[in-house]
């Protein structure tokens, strides 16, 4: 790799070195430390030994899913952030910790996201994304029916809004500590928010699929359902009078 010309295709969604200035990075690092510390305290309250393996697996899954860039437009890709998945399965505090672990491992071992940008990336992807997703999910589940579809739609909406909110976090950071090159901040903000609507749709499809699959198999493992199984939609056998179902009686 030549100095000054990083191979573009190997960078990921994470903020690379020197895009945001030192003071801004430092402020967000402090915010991240305080918020993650608070999450740790809050997560311990809801955590028991039974949840540990699930939280570990969810973290590994988010790490793997972040490697899977999907095309969103010609020459542009996106990947799962994982905040919505973590929030739906584990709740906001433990969920935010999962994404934080992923971002730290990526920055320290995989050269994915600058070490100096760890605070910036944790604030956007672990904190903003996870808490936004959880808020949207909680609201949507109050309105929508507690069925497979209701949950799926809620998770889909939470994913899109959480990804756009995370990208808005970057816009804020760039406004504070970035240097406009080649385009105005306004144009850049519009482009970033716009592309992340598309990334969010991809994230929404994957996350809704994953969460509803878990909810059907093990509703007790979906934090957002708070221990209540999904309302089972009436099956065909129940909606039709038994006489019209010959297979059952005729056999």
């Amino acid at each position: 790799m030549q100095k000054g010309a990083p191979p573009v295709e190997d960078l990921a969604l994470h903020i690379p070195t020197d895009v945001i200035d030192g003071p801004t990075s430092l402020i967000f690092a402090l915010v991240a430390v305080l918020a993650v510390g608070w999450c740790t305290v809050a997560a311990r309250r809801g955590l028991d030994e039974r949840l540990v393996p699930l939280a570990g697996l969810a973290t590994a899954f988010i790490f793997a899913a972040q490697m899977l860039n999907f095309p969103i437009a010609a020459g542009v890709s996106g990947h799962l952030l994982g905040g919505a998945l973590a929030a739906a399965l584990l709740g906001p505090w433990l969920g935010a910790l999962c994404v934080t672990v992923v971002i730290a491992i990526q920055a320290l071992l995989f050269a994915d996201g600058a070490v100096t940008a760890l605070g910036l990336n944790v604030v956007n992807m672990a904190l903003i994304a996870t808490f936004t997703a959880y808020g949207v999910l909680a609201l949507a589940l109050k309105v929508l029916p507690r069925t497979r579809w209701g949950l799926g739609v809620a998770v889909f909406a939470a994913s899109i809004i959480s990804v756009v909110a995370a990208s808005a976090g970057f816009v804020l950071q760039f406004w504070l500590g970035g240097e406009e090159v080649g385009q105005s901040l306004g144009a850049m903000a519009a482009a970033i928010l716009g592309t992340h609507v598309l990334v969010g749709i991809g994230e929404g499809v994957i996350t809704a699929g994953a969460v509803t699959a878990v909810a059907v198999a093990r509703p007790d493992l979906v934090h957002a359902l708070r221990g209540t199984p999904l309302a089972r939609p009436a099956t065909l056998a129940e909606t039709l009078p038994s006489k019209t179902l010959p297979s059952k009686d005729a056999a």
Partner: peptide, 9 residues
């Protein structure tokens, strides 16, 4: 996976 630059990049 797609090797294209992602949304932010």
């Amino acid at each position: 996976a797609s090797a294209s630059p992602d949304g932010l990049e």
